[in-house]
């Protein structure tokens, strides 16, 4: 069990909280404290909208230990509206086929359980096809 590792990341994981560079306005995810664009310190916290599109995707049939419960599942690189690329699962696909360019939105889901059924539940961001009003 890795309680501290997951606990210290909870806020960015629950809500896609990254950073904003006060020098060049670059939006940063994951947070890395130094702006990758201009090299200056960037520690201002920034909540991403969670909107983006699928840049690439694949479905995993042979899941690593700890992820068998939800296999097969789809992992994607999602290009966020604000710029950064994020690695996350696509969920709630139903019968929809994922495709490059598909608009997606962030939601918070169970990533997996830390250890067996006695372990802590790890929650974090995933993306689903953007829902539209009917």
């Amino acid at each position: 069990m890795e309680i501290p590792r997951h606990w210290r990341l909870r806020q960015q994981r629950y809500g896609l909280i990254g950073e904003l560079c006060p020098h060049c306005d670059t939006k940063i995810f994951p947070p890395r404290d130094i702006c990758p664009a201009c090299g200056h310190e960037a520690k201002t916290s920034f909540a991403f909208s969670g909107r983006g599109e699928v840049f690439s995707f694949t479905t995993i049939y042979e899941a690593p230990t700890g992820f068998e419960e939800t296999a097969p599942y789809t992992v994607a690189l999602v290009k966020l509206e604000e710029g950064p690329m994020v690695t996350a699962q696509l969920t709630d696909l139903g019968d929809d086929k994922p495709e490059i360019g598909m608009p997606v939105e962030m939601i918070t889901r169970r990533l997996h359980s830390d250890g067996d059924e006695r372990g802590m539940l790890i929650y974090g961001y995933k993306f689903r096809p953007s829902m539209k009003a009917v």
Binding site: F55, F57, T58, I60, V75, L77, T87, G124
Partner: peptide, 21 residues
Amino acid sequence: ADYESIHGMTLTTQAALLAQR
């Protein structure tokens, strides 16, 4: 570990994401 494998990603997943794109 914090931004890839926690999402169920593997080495093969990385390669597949590259290949797809």
